[in-house]
């Protein structure tokens, strides 16, 4: 092994060129880029198609033509008259922002304790977190629904927001995975300098854990913004409590032949998430890696 590796360390060139003649390498380069371009078109295609549909007239949307004959910007205004979109947007923002804020406030201390404190039962507590994460939500859905019904909170989004004050298993797990990688020396040093637990957490640990906190915050925000199952269970039949996801699904069903309007509404619901994702994709992707095999 070492003998065969030796020349390699001398001439460190791109792998493909080492053995194959130049022509073959070029062919390989062309092939992989061609596939990448084809895939990009495959993924971009539907997006372009729905954007084009969103601008078509009612009549043109029901043809197999791909390019809008006239650009009907008014579609994007019409949907606001067809459905209480502003209310849904407001509800969605409220749900996403509150749930994310509550989750962060409640989950960080738990993750910190699980990662950095030594106490009897810590392993058991971590096991409980994992169990909570793994259990299919359908198992507990009915009794939890009945709890909220007893408090007369079904028909609102509060049953989805309030539990976040007590922590979220997935976020706790992810934060803990990150926090254990921070060397103990930092918090020890803070203690020696006379920092209390609370100050150690705020001033030493939190700044270091910023990437992980950003990731779980983003995950939670995206989850809530896109959540369909939760609002479907709890928001009830009163449209003034609906979120964009819930409203969009109903909109699709009610305007089943007006694909231009449905797609305009879809784009409107997707746009904020795509913009946020565009600017925060690095954080997001690092977070996904944290969920992987460790």
């Amino acid at each position: 092994m070492t003998a065969t590796l030796a020349p390699e360390t001398v001439a460190r060139r791109p792998a493909a060129r080492i053995r194959s003649p130049k022509g073959r390498a070029t062919l390989y380069w062309i092939a992989k880029h061609a596939i990448a371009v084809a895939l990009s078109i495959m993924f971009l295609g539907p997006l372009v198609f729905i954007i084009l549909t969103a601008f078509m007239s009612d009549r043109q949307a029901l043809t197999s033509e791909l390019w809008p004959a006239t650009w009907n910007w008014s579609n994007f205004a019409d949907i606001f008259e067809e459905a209480p979109l502003l209310t849904w947007i407001r509800n969605t923002i409220m749900y996403s922002v509150l749930a994310t804020a509550f989750m962060l406030v409640s989950s960080i201390p738990v993750a910190y304790a699980l990662a950095k404190f030594r106490f009897r039962g810590r392993k058991l507590a971590f096991l409980l977190v994992i169990t909570t994460m793994m259990l299919p939500p359908q198992v507990v859905a009915v009794p939890i629904y009945l709890i909220w019904a007893r408090f007369h909170l079904t028909g609102t989004l509060w049953p989805l927001i309030i539990p976040m004050l007590l922590g979220d298993a997935f976020s706790i797990f992810l934060l803990r995975q990150f926090l254990v990688t921070i060397p103990r020396e930092y918090s020890d040093a803070a203690r020696v300098d006379g920092c209390g637990e609370f100050r150690t957490l705020i001033q030493v640990i939190l700044p270091m854990a910023r990437p992980a906190i950003a990731a779980v915050g983003l995950f939670q925000f995206f989850f809530c913004w896109n959540d369909y199952y939760g609002p479907l269970l709890y928001a009830g039949t009163d449209q003034s409590h609906w979120t964009l996801s819930l409203g969009l699904a109903a909109f699709k069903s009610q305007h089943s032949v007006q694909w231009n309007l449905t797609m305009a509404a879809t784009i409107l619901a997707m746009a904020p998430v795509i913009v946020v994702f565009f600017f925060a994709q690095k954080v997001f992707i690092e977070g996904v890696k944290l969920t992987g095999v460790k």
Binding site: F222, N226, Y228, L248, A249, K252, T266, A269, M270, I274
Partner: peptide, 10 residues
């Protein structure tokens, strides 16, 4: 990152 409801509609 696209919502299920949007994916369904699309």
């Amino acid at each position: 990152v696209t919502a299920e409801a949007a994916v369904g509609a699309i």
